[in-house]
Amino acid sequence: MTVMTKTTKTAAGKWLRRRENGQFEITDRTLAVLMILPAVILIGAFAIYPVLQGFAASFFRIESATLAMTFTGLSNYKDLFGDSLFWESLGRTLVWTAATILVQISVGLGISLLLHQELRGRNLARGLVLFPYLIPAVVIAVTWRFILDPTLGVFNRTMLEWGLIDRPIAFLASKSTALLFVIIGGIWKYTPFVVIMLLARLQVIPVDLEEAAQIDGATRWQVFRHITLPWLMPVIVITLLLRTIWMFNEFDMVYLFAFGGPLFGTTTLPVLVRYLAFDARQIGMAAATSSVMVVILMTMSWGYFQFYNRAEANLN
């Protein structure tokens, strides 16, 4: 008798069941619904409903002072798709997302494996490598900007002293390097998140599997490839999925680093949304941009779900 079959077979009623002593008790089905209900309500009210509202707003022209709405059909989308700034921002968003994600995941995996080794001082190191994730983006952005400033910053100064460059370089003032440094900042800030996720998963790896494999004469690579990696896979995929969504939507690190400039060179879609909603005061256009972002992300996540199902199946 397994738990699963018990639910369906003995259920006199779907939701309630009479016990032998005559009292009622809830079925597992009811229990499941009760357990998930609070989450459904909260997520519905504060996550899903606002998104639908935002989606609806994209079909309206919205007065910036009164928030009064006039239905305009698809005109926001038409304006958006005709705007080269939108397409450029989309391109930059994809570059930013791909670059930060690839490095985060690979470096994050490397660091978490490193911290899983029996090394002296690793407990301290485990704490320290997490720091970037713990400092608010506001403080970090100001500090980085300051460190990188060509006239005032310590970075250029040191490089000059060591003779690596012969005159100060304004990294954030050139369209070609600004995005690169914003990407470095993003990697710096969010790699620790990947480390936390993977390190936690490594803690619960069934140790005997690893040991048994090593006794069987498997090489380290083989153990990693056939035991560790599949064990990590579901978490890697979830981390990838969520980080992709989050990096795509990242605002703080991008905006506070370079404020979307120079010449819109670091304007990604979330920065564009802010610009449209606050500065250009076209809230409807901002909502349309956001809706396009949702569609792109939904398509991407669909791909991840396929991976996720496979990773879970592999594990079983």
Partner: peptide, 19 residues
């Protein structure tokens, strides 16, 4: 549920405020 992370929060502020 992942929709929660897909739209920039700036757009969500107004509906949430009104709720």
């Amino acid at each position: 549920t992942l929709l929660a992370y897909m739209m920039p929060p700036i757009i969500l502020v107004v509906p949430i405020f009104f709720i």
